[in-house]
């Protein structure tokens, strides 16, 4: 029957131990929820301060790291804090797939010891890192 082909695969609910699926699933979930929460806080804060929801600011030609640093520096200014929340929400969103790939590299290298896929995910990680440094 079907049991033969599935002899070595897991049945749902039986082996719910920590593995790559759980790790990646939760990284993605936490990242998106945190990002949405930061964006919502930023807007509510802004609304409470000024009764206006529109943020007027553009970021001109910065890479990801400059964007994060500039935002954090604005934290010092009282007026700009809602904006910092919104910027951080976008930054967390961008970091979510990045952290997912980073975790995969470590999981393939240290837990599964699968060098083929360590190399593949390592390549993805380097391209993404390069792209975050783009100017």
């Amino acid at each position: 029957m079907a049991g033969q082909t599935s002899a070595n695969s897991e049945k749902p609910g039986t082996h719910r131990h920590f593995d790559m699926e759980i790790l990646i699933g939760y990284i993605l979930l936490v990242g998106v929820l945190l990002s949405v929460a930061l964006l919502a806080i930023g807007f509510i804060w802004r609304w409470e301060r000024s009764g206006n929801l529109r943020f007027q600011h553009t970021i001109l030609g910065m890479n990801f790291f400059e964007f994060v640093l500039t935002s954090l520096r604005q934290m010092a200014s009282h007026d700009l804090r809602p904006r910092v929340m919104v910027n951080m929400g976008i930054a967390v969103l961008m970091l979510t797939p990045f952290v997912r790939v980073l975790a995969s590299v470590f999981y393939f290298a240290l837990v599964q010891r699968n060098w083929k896929y360590t190399l593949f995910t390592g390549f993805v990680l380097s391209v993404l890192t390069y792209s975050l440094f783009l100017r």
Binding site: G61, M62, I90
Partner: peptide, 8 residues
């Protein structure tokens, strides 16, 4: 983002 086209 690096082209300055993303307005938060």
């Amino acid at each position: 983002l690096s082209a300055g086209m993303i307005d938060p």
